[in-house]
Structure formats: structure tokens, C-alpha cells
């Protein structure tokens, strides 16, 4: 059982969190033409980092999203910040 720090609730069990994707992924502006490749990259490509990864997680108990830096091999949590528009 891992524990993740929620910036709002503190250290909580992993079962309260959901992984929500890579940090820094920006949705293409679909009011403008978007190529198949661009859209597919947005939908399908993951950084899938072995080692230090930057990810978005949601703490389901408080519904807040957070930016988590994590080592995907050792499982160490390296940093956590609030995830808010403009802060990524």
C-alpha cells in the first residue's frame, strides 16, 4: 500500500487516488484544424517514463487534482503540488 500526499488532505492511502495522465498534456484547439497525427498523439501517446515521472492524479476523496512527481521504479514520491490551470 503506497501513500500519496494530497496538498489538501495530507498523506492518504493509494486507494483514494486515481492516475489521470501525464502532466503537461495540452488538448489541441479543436476549433482549428487538427491533424490526425496531432490528435492521435494527444489521445494515445504517453511519456511512460521509467524513473522520474511527472503525472496528474486525482484524490477522489476531495476531488482535487494534483501534480505528482514520482519514481516509477522505486515508487518514491518526489514532490506534489496543486494542479490548477496555468500552473503546469
Amino acid at each position: 500500500m503506497q501513500r500519496f500526499p494530497c496538498p489538501f488532505c495530507g498523506l492518504r492511502d493509494e486507494t483514494e487516488f486515481f492516475y489521470a495522465g501525464d502532466l503537461g498534456k495540452v488538448r489541441p484547439d479543436t476549433t482549428q484544424p487538427v491533424s490526425d497525427e496531432e490528435w492521435s498523439a494527444y489521445l494515445n501517446d504517453y511519456a511512460n517514463v521509467k524513473g522520474r515521472a511527472k503525472e496528474v492524479w486525482v484524490h477522489t476523496a476531495c476531488q482535487e487534482y494534483l501534480a505528482l512527481e514520482r519514481d516509477t521504479v522505486t515508487m518514491d514520491v518526489l514532490s506534489v503540488t496543486q494542479f490548477r490551470k496555468g500552473e503546469i
Binding site: A20, R27, V56, V58, Q63, E64, Y65, F83, R84, K85
Partner: peptide, 9 residues
């Protein structure tokens, strides 16, 4: 909630 916090204010 996901879209509210990701891409919206």
C-alpha cells in the same frame, strides 16, 4: 471534475 480542473478555471 476532470475537465473543470484541467483546462478550465
Amino acid at each position: 471534475e476532470a475537465w473543470r480542473q484541467d483546462g478550465n478555471d
